[in-house]
Design a protein around this nucleic acid. Structure first.
Length: 495
RNA sequence: GGUCCGAUGGCCGAGUGGCUAGGCUCAGCUCUGCAAAAGCUGCUACAGCGGUUCGAAUCCGCUUCGGACCUCCA
């Protein structure tokens, strides 16, 4: 097994990854709240953990990857006046709440598919686990870390903090939090401003509600993740992921709930947080109005976008930065990524048709391959991996130009390495490659027709009929097909 | 206000004490019927000021600027 290091946000250290029950790994990632379309920032987080999932699987772990769908329970405001986001949307759009949920769940799945983000092993929904959530509230009540108040149940943070560490993950201190919550009034149900809801009593206008021992109501904001991670991964599991902005209060509350319910002191061994996608240095968020949807990105139909970009280019762009750093979006950066991506795909395609040298190879492909592993083993460092792969791109191109010797074994190992790291681990789908581009076209005859045209042009070149040769090249160019000449003949490429 | 993080060449973006990624852009060259592609070469940076060290982008301190979280947020 590869010696993998993971930046653990719980400890702040980069630690050697040791699963509780190797080769099995349990991973939980906070999924989307399905009350609106996902934007590109959301996509980045799910991409981050897609890479984690893919790489762990690639190096031989059997991963149970749980990613939830939040379809109830997030309040729009703090305090008692809060309204469920799903219910609010339903009211605004005049829909059944579950209709809203279904619509945006479908949208989410579509987006994930477009970006080649793999589905998780289990995708549980909050509304499907109301019974379990009620059970966990009972357990927390039984252990004395929650109290009922007018039909609602709140987590007693101070009581909990007296027995267990609270704020460990986010580096918060209880006393500092107190002063920060001074502005929140009108919360007379709570004993303390720090307390958070486990169960909320629903008023008459609330659309989504369930019976419980305390009231007809709905579960609190953070409870579902505690419940579903425990149910499918156990009271203690390996990796919990999510966006940086969920660290506090969401993940802190999750830990408190888990510990409060069963006393297991360390429910999660490795906490991982993906950083934000920014636009002009600011976090992309719905409330900022600077977010765009994947569809807008692809079509280019948004004021921030000069034109559209393909999903794989966007994927490649995002992997060009480390998940733990903020990544700034710009048209310039996207266009640079697009060129780099195309160049890599071309080189990989060229590798397949390369004639190996009889002479022994001149570069150390084994060492290069090892450095690919090293990059990923260093906390999933995809930018480093990409840089390493580009060294291979250069060699492949040099070999094709007859300037570098690569023997048969080396060619094979390079192809295998690109296949594994570029396509398998990074999940690029090779859409820019001639074969697949043509296969994805409308007509299976396309490659043959193009081969024919290229052959005609080559014949014209041989007879020095430059007019015909250039006419064919120009005509194809207008159709978005480029012709590349080399010593071994000409090749075509769509787009 | 509190907590935390960041500041790298024209742009993006890795890199935690000496070996000084990578992509894009730009200039020159090679190849080419021309072009494109590709290859080669060049442009060699670490916000500022101090300090530690034989040696710092990398460690420490201060300053300036930016960001995230503290309220739903990937």
């Amino acid at each position: 097994m590869q010696p993998l290091l993971i930046q653990n946000t719980l400890t702040g250290e980069k630690e050697a990854f040791k699963p509780l029950h190797a080769p099995h790994v349990g991973m939980y990632v906070c999924g989307p709240t399905v009350y609106s379309n996902v934007h590109l920032g959301n996509v980045r987080t799910f991409l981050t953990f897609d890479i984690v999932f893919r790489y762990l699987t690639f190096i031989g772990y059997q991963v149970r990857y749980v990613r939830n769908i939040t379809d109830v329970g997030h309040l729009t405001d703090d305090g008692d006046q809060g309204e469920d986001k799903v219910a609010k949307k339903a009211r605004l759009e005049n829909l059944e709440p579950m209709e809203v949920v279904q619509r945006y769940t479908n949208d989410f799945h579509d987006v994930m598919r477009v970006f080649n983000i793999l589905p998780p092993s289990i995708e549980p929904s909050a509304t499907g686990h109301i019974v379990e959530q009620i059970e966990m509230i009972k357990a927390i009540l039984d252990r004395g870390y929650a109290y009922e108040s007018q039909g609602s149940v709140y987590f007693d943070v101070r009581k909990f903090a007296a027995d267990y560490p609270y704020g460990e993950l986010s580096g918060r201190k209880i006393d500092e939090l107190i002063s920060a919550t001074r502005a929140l009034d009108g919360q007379d149900e709570k004993r303390d401003g720090l307390d958070f809801a486990l169960w909320k009593k629903a008023d008459e206008t609330h659309l989504m509600h369930w019976p419980s021992p305390w009231s007809e109501g709905f579960p609190g904001w953070h409870l579902e993740c505690s419940v579903m991670s425990t149910k499918y991964l156990g009271e203690r599991f390996d990796i919990h992921g999510g966006g940086m902005d969920l660290k506090f209060p969401h993940h802190e509350c999750e830990i408190a709930q888990n510990v409060g319910a069963n006393g297991e002191a360390r429910p999660v061994n490795y906490w991982m947080h993906g950083n934000m996608l920014t636009v002009n240095g600011r976090k992309m968020a719905k409330s900022e109005g600077n977010g765009f949807t994947p569809e807008e990105l692809i079509t280019g139909n948004h004021q921030l976008l000069e034109r559209g970009y393909s999903p794989m280019v966007v994927r490649f762009f995002m992997l060009g930065g480390h998940y733990g750093s903020t990544l700034d979006f710009s048209n310039e950066a996207l266009q640079a990524a697009e060129k780099g991506y195309d160049r890599m795909m071309q080189a990989v395609a060229g590798l397949a048709g390369l004639t190996p040298s009889d002479a022994p190879g001149e570069v150390d492909i084994d060492a290069w391959r090892r450095r690919c592993f090293d990059a990923m083993n260093d906390d999933f460092n995809t930018p480093k991996l990409i840089a390493t792969l580009f060294e291979g791109v250069k060699w492949a191109n040099s070999a094709k130009a007859g300037q570098l010797a690569l023997d048969a074994a080396q060619c094979a190992l390079m192809q295998r390495t690109f296949s594994e790291f570029a396509f398998h681990v990074m999940g690029l789908d090779g859409e820019g490659m001639p074969d697949t581009a043509a296969a994805g076209g409308d007509n299976a005859l396309t490659p043959q027709l193009l081969d024919l045209l290229v052959q005609l042009r080559s014949d014209a070149k041989t007879s020095k009929d430059w007019g015909t040769a250039d006419a064919i090249r120009n005509a194809l160019s207008e159709l978005g097909i480029t012709i590349q000449d080399s010593k071994d003949g000409s090749t075509w490429n769509i787009e």
